[in-house]
Computed example of a mutant assay.
Amino acid sequence: MKFQFAHNNFNVLDLERSLKFYEEALGFKSARKLEGPGFTLAYLSDGGQTQHELELTWIHGRKEPYNLGENEFHLAVRTDDFEAAHEKHKAMGCICFENEEMGIYFISDPDGYWIEILPPSM
Results as ranks from 00 to 15, higher is better:
I95M: 04
K88T: 07
A91K: 12
L19D: 00
N99R: 11
C96F: 01
L75F: 15
E101A: 13
N71Q: 10
C94G: 05
T50S: 13
P120I: 06
E98H: 10
Y22T: 00
P119N: 08
A91P: 06
H52Y: 15
G47P: 02
L68E: 05
F10N: 02
F106M: 07
L13H: 02
L34Y: 14
E23W: 10
S45N: 07
F21P: 01
G103I: 11
N67A: 15
N71F: 08
N99G: 08
G103S: 08
S18H: 02
M122K: 12
D109T: 00
F82K: 06
E72W: 15
R32C: 02
G38A: 08
E24M: 07
L26I: 09
E53G: 03
F106N: 04
H52W: 15
L44M: 04
Q49V: 15
K63E: 15
D111V: 00
G48N: 04
T79G: 03
E53Y: 03
E24S: 11
Q51S: 12
N9G: 12
M122N: 07
E53V: 08
E23Q: 06
G61C: 11
A91G: 07
E87N: 09
K2V: 12
M122Y: 14
L75A: 12
K63Q: 15
F21R: 00
M102T: 13
R32Q: 08
L34V: 14
I104K: 09
T57S: 10
F82E: 06
D111N: 02
I107Y: 02
H60W: 06
K20D: 10
G61I: 12
Q51T: 13
A31G: 05
Q49M: 13
N71R: 12
L56F: 00
I115F: 06
W114L: 13
K20L: 13
E87V: 11
L26D: 01
K2E: 10
Q49Y: 15
H7M: 06
Y105K: 05
M122S: 08
F39E: 02
G47R: 04
F39A: 03
E55A: 10
L118W: 15
L75M: 14
R78M: 12
K29S: 05
Q51R: 14
I104Q: 10
I95N: 03
N9E: 14
L13N: 02
F73P: 05
K63R: 15
K2P: 09
E101G: 10
L56C: 00
E16T: 02
